[in-house]
Design a protein around this nucleic acid. Structure first.
Lengths: 158, 158
DNA sequence: CTACCTGCAAAAGGTTTGCACCGAG
DNA sequence: CTCGGTGCAAACCTTTTGCAGGTAG
């Protein structure tokens, strides 16, 4: 049985990091090993990660000296650059981060095992715009998380 | 010009606190002045309040000895009893609380002034159920917050 | 009386900040 | 060489917890 090596993306990490380097340079900032490692860890991860988890993975996988503060500084920077999404989920006491690679999507979380599924529903998004317009708001974004029990946990509960 | 005295509800505070007293007794718990004051402050408030704000209002309006810990304990209890809703909003670093009086609703927040509007859209809720079902989830709840610029702030920005 | 509830202060846990040093370009 | 980036530790803030004393029923 082949070991799972991580999320498969349309783009390779090399291509991705190349784009990132250009992006960060265009902002007058420097690249750094720590920034690349954080990106790599997020790129390879199947799951959404907390800052602490990102820190642990970078330390384990790259044996580099890195502290929590740096991870937070990097994640905040990446969020400002819209390179990562930060989500706050009920029951979790820290932010969870994911790479903003694919199209926009929302999340569905299993209250039992914490599994996170992603979905995108164009109709809902259109209705959100409609609701906002009715209230006179110019909508700039939204957060939507559905909570429930995933198929696996439901079966186990029987 | 008549002074605004607070949110008008279908139910009076007296009726409401009566119901609450029965509810809390049926759980084998006691009522207390602090619990009533927290409820009163939430009942009277037009806005969503943080724990700290609830604390301040109780202290100002009732000159009673009360500490942060108590407010948090009460708010958590009320949340478990589904008497209040707690919401976590982007840009705010603490939970915001509201009385769970009216029908279920979601929120729309102005990124500029922080104003919160409430809305309810049955179509969206139905679509959420549909999405959950498609993924095999049994949905138990959701959070949805729309972010944008409210009419007032948009005008001021022109 | 006897739980339950509260105030206070200390602790916890996540995130940010100050500062001196390090490293990328 | 010159900023920007980082590590470390301390600071911050919200929320929780332990404990002794207070209160509702």
């Amino acid at each position: 049985l082949e070991e799972e090596v991580g999320r498969k993306h349309i783009i390779t990490y090399e291509e991705y990091i190349g784009k990132f380097q250009k992006m960060i340079r265009s902002l007058g900032l420097n690249n750094s090993m720590q920034r690349e490692y954080v990106l790599k860890v997020l790129f390879d991860s199947e799951e959404h990660l907390s800052a602490e988890e990102v820190l642990q993975r970078v330390k384990e996988q790259y044996r580099v000296k890195i502290g929590v503060a740096t991870v937070y500084r990097i994640l905040n920077l990446l969020e400002d650059m819209q390179v990562v999404n930060a989500l706050s989920l009920k029951g979790m006491d820290s932010m969870m981060y994911e790479l903003n690679l694919s199209q926009h999507h929302d999340h569905m979380v299993c209250k039992s095992c914490g599994a996170i599924a992603e979905f995108h529903n164009k109709q809902i998004e259109q209705l959100q715009e409609k609701v906002a317009a009715k209230e006179g708001f110019t909508m700039t974004g939204h957060t939507m998380v559905l909570y429930g029990i995933c198929p696996k946990c439901r079966k186990e509960g029987e």
